[in-house]
Design a protein around this nucleic acid. Sequence first.
DNA 1: CTGGATCCGTCATGATACTG
DNA 2: CAGTATCATGACGGATCCAG
Lengths: 126, 126
Amino acid sequence: MNNDTNCDVGFTSDNIYETKCPLIYALEIIGKKWKLPIMWYLFENEFTRYNELKRKVKGITSMMLTKALKELEEHNLIVRIQYEAIPPKVEYALTERGKALLPALNELSKWGGEQLKLDRLKSSCE
Amino acid sequence: MNNDTNCDVGFTSDNIYETKCPLIYALEIIGKKWKLPIMWYLFENEFTRYNELKRKVKGITSMMLTKALKELEEHNLIVRIQYEAIPPKVEYALTERGKALLPALNELSKWGGEQLKLDRLKSSCE
DNA sequence: CTGGATCCGTCATGATACTG
DNA sequence: CAGTATCATGACGGATCCAG
């Protein structure tokens, strides 16, 4: 499993671009809170406006939404489309890079679903 | 993408077993720091002792190692094998459940590798 | 409508020292 | 050898208010 890529799993480097394990790197990008819920919604609804995201991603605040969107944009997983209008109108959409995550997320989701059942089973026996 | 499984992405529930998205659930289990490095090492070295893990997973402390191992064991991703001997001997190994993560991690790692290249490229142009 | 700024509590992480 | 216990801290997340 990618053991040939010098995978420094010790988090000792401050430079995210040095000696990074691609797996850890992926998790750092998408693993933070709200990232996946946002992307998930964009998977199903291309071109979504800021406030719609805020309404649909339950519980998120403006601050966290803004921050998450900015980070996703910096990694080129989403694009920000700003219309010069009053009142302001901004839409967000996934890039091809963002969509490329789908297969990996599906695999992980499949595993998570099985795990969820097993853990439920275990907890009900205790 | 699993939209049929009631996927409450709002993190509003305190009960981890209620209305959970399997994808988020998976990330909660394996996304924490040190989890993957430990599992990664166990992928490549079945039956590893506590202190060997501590040496090989660079930078980890006893406390974090113990905690991570305990959580992984609670989710049945690893097993703890204790030998009744002086001095103590304990080995850890992946379960089938733990090994079942491999395909998903490979997909994610593949994506992360591509992303890493793109991000490097981008940063070198700035 | 689309954010930005600020304050603040909590929790994960880490350093250090200790134990059977 | 395989952990525990205690304390410190700093990032993260949430609430609230402000702005163009």
